[in-house]
Design a protein around this nucleic acid. Structure first.
Length: 738
DNA sequence: GCGCCTTAGTTTTTT
DNA sequence: ACTAAGGCGC
């Protein structure tokens, strides 16, 4: 059954699908059927007789690429396992693992995640003796971030510091020293960070024209999605892979460029027609996702952006309700109001069709507590990743050591489980291994028999080539006793995570592909994307490319959204604006923007007046329906209905009054009088002392966080924040040393 | 040197 | 909330 392009696509989409030769740039506005266009183009190419092997599709996540290839297969009625798709990083690693030796790297390389890179950076700083004990020296995470940015933007570190962190300019020399030390440390041990993957692939393509030619001959049709979020190396890689006369299509939306912080360069998409002379530019402006009132708002958000491809989104759907602008009294009542709004919207849409979006991960904490209290199930994107959980990393570390014995972060992780061994000893053993210093190794093993056991186990695992799933099983047998000892009460949950890991491993034939994929494309905890009837919480960045029937955006006040870090720089502010644009264009039918009138300030411990986000302040009022919450306990408690036909403020008649449950807009429990300064619960008198918890056992209360929450230090479990209700207070410690 | 505790000072976004 | 460094016992 041939694909019906005339019926399934609009003229602009069809043009993009049919333009299979030469360079094509598709400017695809939000919700304009971009994915559909790529899917049809893939299918069309194959239908025209192009071999799937000749197609390379680079996207932002591997999942997105696989889904598009799968959908193209569904159109054709046959799967396309030979088509290549993935992220730049995963594609780069795929090529590099076959050619590491050509670049002078060890045959077995390890791809590090952010945490591993930080561990390496800390060790390099210690070894080089850079600013020891200097508390003003930036932390390893900050150092790494700035050096990575300097690499990705291809700007000398001194210049970058001058522009983005002038207070660190005195450390400019130290940064340069660290950059060198970090690079050589990695190279000597076959460690690759995210940036290395891109730059090494470029080096390979430049130094080995024969390999570049082989790749070009294979991938005759290159497609790059989300081109607005590529950085300079990635653009050069595209040029290398396509060649001057290649068939290359870039798809993207300059208005949705939100990754400049990690070196992405909007100029790439703006300049694509110059990079590939003769480029055909196709603009998709018809929006199939949102209703017109939502688009009116998003078009206006964008209207002030300085340089862009001209486009104006037009809705193809009729009707729709005007977006809400809600002004909760504080960020605390914002959480309560958002829960009430979600509850109400859930009567109209399945819960997984509702999402709450925010600028930064921490901004959902208050909401998460409120949701737990209201027993609303939710799933958070952009939070802790499956592969970053301690027990998962432990097992992965052993697997990594099988193929790369010099993997310092992995070695350190595992050796820290051996009693009497810490970072220092681990680094020494690693150095001895790297230098081939056998006597030093023997000495260390003699001193720490546990380390010897580990090495024997590793040698055993290395004795043959085993499938990853089998290796995971064997490592679990070795590791489970350690886990149960470290977490006597909590280990079942962690074991379940490890079971999941072994499931994932079963899908791989080779160990290095398995390990690299986990680092390059984190599966979400709980496996398999969207859970039914579960509210979605997400950072705006993680929400890219997704859509929901109803979207709430919270914390839309200056310093939060836009982020405080961006407020000083006009360029960064433009990115914040685009971020808001991305957030609002995720909504199909309902959009509610929350701008609390007051927010909690950590420094002072009080709530202070907040300024509504600059981007909202500059919008004409007719674009939304405004509702302000009164002072707690006073008039104005009635909340608006979000499900009315035209966003009316009173409950629409003829429906079961869908206003929020009574009292939801009131001050949180434990609040003092209705005075703004004291509306937030002040920290009650500290109840420090000793306590017992059902699961964690005996502990010492070392802090009172208010709202009934205590910070408790449990023996063997460390610091936990626990609700006082779950604790039995003890007059005296029963055990010594608690 | 390790490991555990305390204290002081920062917290954006992600492959 | 998380990191890093200093103190202290082993």
């Amino acid at each position: 059954m041939p694909i019906d392009l005339d019926h399934d696509l609009n003229p602009a989409q069809r043009e993009a699908v049919l333009a299979t030769t030469g360079a094509v740039l598709v400017i695809a506005g939000a919700g304009s059927g971009k994915t559909r266009t790529i899917v049809y183009r893939l299918a069309h190419l194959v239908e025209q007789g192009v071999s799937p092997e000749a197609i390379l599709l680079l996207t932002f996540t591997r999942k997105a690429a696989q889904e598009m290839i799968m959908r193209a297969g569904a159109l054709l009625g046959r799967q396309l396992p030979k088509a290549s798709g993935g992220t730049f990083h995963s594609f780069a690693y795929g090529v590099l693992r076959r050619h590491a030796v050509d670049l002078g790297y060890p045959a077995a390389c390890t791809v590090m995640d952010r945490g591993d890179s930080e561990d390496v950076m800390a060790e390099v700083r210690r070894e080089l003796g850079i600013a020891p004990q200097d508390k003003t020296f930036p932390k390893r995470g900050a150092v790494l971030e700035l050096l990575s940015k300097s690499r990705n933007k291809e700007t000398p570190i001194g210049d970058l510091l001058g522009r983005e962190a002038p207070h660190l300019l005195p450390f400019s020399g130290d940064f340069a020293t660290l950059a060198e030390g970090y690079a050589s440390f990695k190279a000597a041990r076959g460690l690759l960070d995210y940036d290395d993957l891109l730059f090494l692939l470029e080096r390979l393509l430049t130094e080995r024209p024969d390999i570049a030619e082989t790749l070009r001959a294979r991938y005759r049709y290159v497609m790059v999605d989300e081109y607005q979020d590529t950085n300079m190396v990635q653009a050069r890689l595209v040029r290398h892979l396509a060649g001057p006369a290649g068939n290359v299509m870039a798809v993207g939306d300059d208005a949705q460029s939100i990754y400049a912080f990690r070196g992405a360069n909007v100029e790439n998409i703006l300049r694509f027609p110059e990079d590939f002379p003769g480029t055909r530019v196709i603009t998709l402006e018809e929006n199939y996702r949102s209703t017109q009132p939502i688009l009116d708002l998003t078009n206006e958000v964008l209207r002030q952006a300085p340089r862009r491809f001209e486009k104006n989104l037009r809705a193809t759907r009729g009707g729709g309700s005007v977006p809400f602008l809600l002004r909760p009294f504080s960020d605390f009542s914002q959480a309560e109001l958002a829960v009430a709004a979600v509850t109400e919207l859930a009567r109209e849409h399945p819960l997984h069709e509702v999402a709450v979006l925010f600028r930064a991960g921490y901004q959902s904490y208050a909401l998460e507590i409120a949701l737990n209290k209201a027993r609303v199930p939710f799933q958070k994107f952009g939070g802790i990743r499956f592969a970053e959980a301690a027990h998962i990393k432990d097992v992965l570390s052993i697997l990594r050591l099988i193929q790369n014995p010099l993997d310092l972060p992995a070695l350190t992780r595992i050796l820290e489980h051996v009693p009497g061994v810490g970072k220092r000893t681990a680094a020494k053993i690693n150095a001895a291994l790297a230098a081939g210093n056998q006597p030093a190794l023997d000495k260390a093993v003699k001193r720490h028999p546990g380390a010897g056991e580990l090495f024997a186990f590793l040698d055993d695992l290395r004795s043959g080539v085993y499938p990853p799933a089998l290796l995971v099983e064997r490592v679990m047998v070795f590791y489970t006793p350690l886990l149960t000892r470290a977490h006597p009460e909590d280990y079942p949950r962690r074991l379940a995570g490890l079971e999941q890991l072994s499931q994932i491993a079963a899908g791989y034939a080779s160990l290095d592909a398995f390990l690299a994929d986990l680092v390059l494309e984190n599966p979400e905890e709980g496996e398999g994307g969207v859970k039914r009837d579960t509210l979605v919480l997400s950072t705006v960045h993680s929400a890219k490319g997704l859509e929901w029937s109803a979207v709430l955006v919270i914390d839309l006040v200056d310093d939060r959204f836009p982020s405080r870090h961006a407020m000083a720089s006009p360029q960064d502010m433009e990115e914040e604006r685009r971020l808001l644009y991305v957030a609002c264009t995720r909504a199909r039918e309902r959009l509610a923007l929350f701008a609390p009138q007051r927010v909690y300030q950590r420094q002072s411990g009080t709530t202070v007046p907040a300024t509504m986000s600059l981007f909202l302040r500059s919008l004409p009022e007719h674009l939304f329906t405004v509702w302000s919450e009164g002072y707690p306990g006073m008039a104005g408690r009635g909340a608006p209905s979000l499900t009315g036909d035209r966003g009316t403020l009173s409950s629409p008649s003829g429906r079961p009054a869908p206003s929020f449950p009574d009292g939801l807009a009131a001050a949180p429990a434990g609040a003092g009088p209705a005075d703004p300064e004291t509306a937030r619960p002040k920290t009650p008198p500290a109840r420090l002392g000793y306590c017992r918890h059902k699961i964690f056992g005996e502990g010492k209360v070392i802090g009172d966080l208010g709202e009934g929450k205590l910070r408790v230090n449990f023996q063997g479990f460390g610091l936990k924040v626990i609700l006082a209700d779950y604790l039995e207070m003890l007059p005296e410690p029963n055990r010594a040393g608690v």
